[in-house]
């Protein structure tokens, strides 16, 4: 128990004191209070549902989210943002946070994401397969190479060269009209029909979006599985709550919620 806990104990009475005095951790008081979660932008919808599911299990726990790009979140953490949990969209940012000593314990992969090709419903570029990405004159949008989604996309194109020829990646990238700063921007461009085709995370294509765009799968042989790590932070003010949140995300219920949002559960 932390010093902070002891102070609260002294100040706020018997019930907590009894809980503390209890020798077995499992019978400790139920997690309560506020948990601040820094989560990758692609988790926005899934984690919002997650908080609703969590309310049934831990009614006294209040989850506060801050969604942004993983790199931005890591920077915020470094600058001393008060947070209890960090859920990153890629291992790199988590690794850097770990090296900076911002993470408590070791991070755990909680979900995986795949890439997906999307085209506008009208399909102006007549794209019907992965191979069509190299069609001449196509307007293709990818995330920039500095963005994880953009890096994965380029790795996919590289991997596909084994089957489609050594210039495949180069031919595809000749079609590039914009290197977007986030996957959301790719969605906007395809939704508006400005881009003929884009590569996004499967989790980004919600049912609403599917009314406007058509998905085209990327063959499993080339597709990259982005693994999302989660961890409690070193500076967590509510470690009990943080632990409870992470436990819930990894639980069958939490994994089911993530799956419903297009993610691949770690258990599969």
């Amino acid at each position: 128990m932390t010093g902070q806990g002891r102070v609260s104990t002294v100040l706020f009475g018997m019930i907590l004191l009894m809980g503390m005095a209890s020798p077995a951790g499992t019978t400790a008081s139920p997690p309560s209070g506020e948990v601040v979660v820094l989560a990758a932008a692609s988790l926005t919808d899934a984690f919002t549902d997650m908080a609703m599911g969590l309310r049934d299990a831990h009614p006294r726990l209040r989850i506060v989210y801050n969604f942004a790009g993983s790199q931005t979140l890591r920077t915020q953490l470094e600058q001393g943002a008060a947070a209890d949990v960090f859920a990153s969209a890629n291992a790199e940012q988590m690794q850097r946070a770990l090296e900076s000593g911002l993470i408590q314990g070791s991070p755990r992969a909680f979900v995986r994401n795949t890439l997906l090709i999307i085209v506008p419903r009208a399909n102006p570029g007549q794209v019907t397969s992965f191979e069509d990405l190299a069609k001449e004159g196509l307007k293709l949008t990818l995330a920039g190479p500095q963005v994880p989604a953009g890096r994965y996309s380029r790795e996919v194109l590289q991997a596909a060269q084994a089957d489609y020829g050594t210039d495949f990646a180069a031919r595809v990238q000749r079609n590039l009209v914009s290197e977007e700063t986030s996957v959301k921007q790719i969605l906007v461009k395809v939704l508006f029909g400005e881009a003929d085709v884009g590569i996004v995370y499967a989790s980004d294509v919600s049912e609403n979006i599917l009314r406007e765009v058509s998905p085209i799968p990327i063959p499993d042989a080339y597709n990259r599985l982005a693994s999302y790590p989660i961890a409690a932070t070193q500076a967590a003010r509510n470690p009990t709550g943080a632990a409870a949140f992470i436990r819930f995300v990894l639980s069958p219920t939490g994994q089911a919620i993530l799956k419903a949002h297009g993610f691949i559960p770690v258990t599969e």
Binding site: G144, L176, V177, S178, E179, E180, T181, Q185, V188, K189
Partner: peptide, 8 residues
Amino acid sequence: IMFAGNLT
């Protein structure tokens, strides 16, 4: 970023 995109 919204209207013109981003290409070096």
